[in-house]
Design a protein around this nucleic acid. Structure first.
Lengths: 225, 225
DNA sequence: CGCGCAGTTGAACCTAATCAATGGTGGTGG
DNA sequence: CCACCACCATTGATTAGGTTCAACTGCGCG
């Protein structure tokens, strides 16, 4: 689910056979329009989902209105796992999404009797935790320039396609999402992207289409102290 | 394992019966002196541990030498879980610790055949992830003053004892650990603690013994925008 | 007694936030 | 079909919070 630095391949194929949920036909699939919430922090945590198609964001809100984006969820990622009976974060669609409900939390959060699902979730959680640890480095140790360079590199590594020797990809999220993911302001994201563009490190066909032109320079920007 | 805001009680008692590991007597227990490492990032991940006594820290290092403390581990917490065959962070003792090795990762990271352990780890992981999400808020959304106030409050809530109407507790870690946990400098930690002290919000018997004198004021400092 | 480490305090600097204005784009309705 | 509006992104000027560099203090231990 994490964007930052994961080398983990998508795992959508590894799911155990779909279960009938509540006996309701098709209750195990769901679609959601871009911008719509899947659940909110504090909602009763009934279902765990896997993203089949589209992109989501998970986030937490502070009392003062500030928001921290926890992760961007891509196909294969799992959202909604909770240690108790409520969700602990917001989850919204950034693009139109298709989801599979993997499991209904029928009054328990324990999985002793479902070893296949338990193992799937645990493995997913361990991957996610490793990625979250990378994200901590991002938030705690890096300058704004380093954060944005790292962010672009990680998206390029994972979702980029080679076009005429450049690595190109879409930035489906808004500048505000990137800002809240990296713990900087919208203005800083914008200024830094412009700086990279003017330095010839990236090319922006439009605000949401990035080509990494000078990978080496971008890597230096991502690690420079 | 997380310090920030978890309401989860200690879970040391919930462990399944101790397993014989490699047939070696007592190989399942371990002690470590303060300051000594349990494992390093990149080490082969053979064992998962539960802290029985003492306090640990887990951290990651950047190329430029900067360090991010991921968590402070207290008794009951689990360290060493990994999605693959290597540890992804450093783990060191802050005080002398006693550990139980819960499981040897004998060439696999999957737990389908051990539902009790899998469920234990998954539940722990879900708690930990919820706590990490709180830590993201800390790093991404809060000012230095808010970070340090929040940190003191969370320690007070969890480990504090009431002494003459104040909440008192030990800060076993160094200022540098707190700084690297919160993503600020040592000087900022020191200055902010002094500020709280001079404002009559806390009392410091020594640098590692805190009493929260004015809880309400500290809570305001932790949330003020 | 003196060394070394941890913590505190001070002063100058700098990065990124804030405040403010402008440019661009997509969608809606006249 | 075009005009208008709302939202998003960019850019500029100023400010402030936190870092950096530096000096000093206090304590534990050989």
């Amino acid at each position: 689910m994490y964007v930052a630095f994961s080398k983990e391949p998508m795992r959508g194929i590894e799911l155990p056979p779909m279960q009938a949920l509540d006996g309701t036909v098709n209750s195990s699939n769901k679609t959601l329009k871009a911008g719509k919430p899947l659940f909110h922090e504090g909602d009763k945590a009934e279902l765990v989902y896997q993203i089949v198609e589209g992109i989501m964001r998970t986030s937490k809100l502070q009392a003062n209105g500030k928001r921290q984006i926890i992760s961007f969820g891509y196909p294969g990622d799992i959202v909604g796992l909770s240690p108790d009976q409520v969700y602990h974060y917001e989850c919204e669609a950034i693009l139109d999404v298709k989801l599979r409900a993997i499991r209904k939390n029928a009054g328990t959060t324990r999985y002793e009797n479902e070893p296949a699902i338990c193992d799937l979730f645990l493995h997913h959680a361990a991957v996610e935790m490793a990625n979250m640890q990378e994200h901590f480095m991002m938030l705690g140790c890096k300058s704004a320039t380093e954060k944005i360079a790292s962010f672009l590199l990680s998206l390029g590594e994972r979702y980029g396609e080679r076009v005429e020797n450049n690595i190109c990809f879409k930035l489906p999220m808004k500048r505000a999402d990137i800002a809240d993911f990296l713990g900087v302001t919208i203005e800083t994201v914008s200024r830094t992207m412009t700086k990279f563009r003017k330095a010839g490190m990236i090319h922006l066909a439009d605000a949401h289409t990035v080509c990494i032109v000078d990978m080496a320079a971008l890597k230096i920007s991502a690690e420079a102290e």
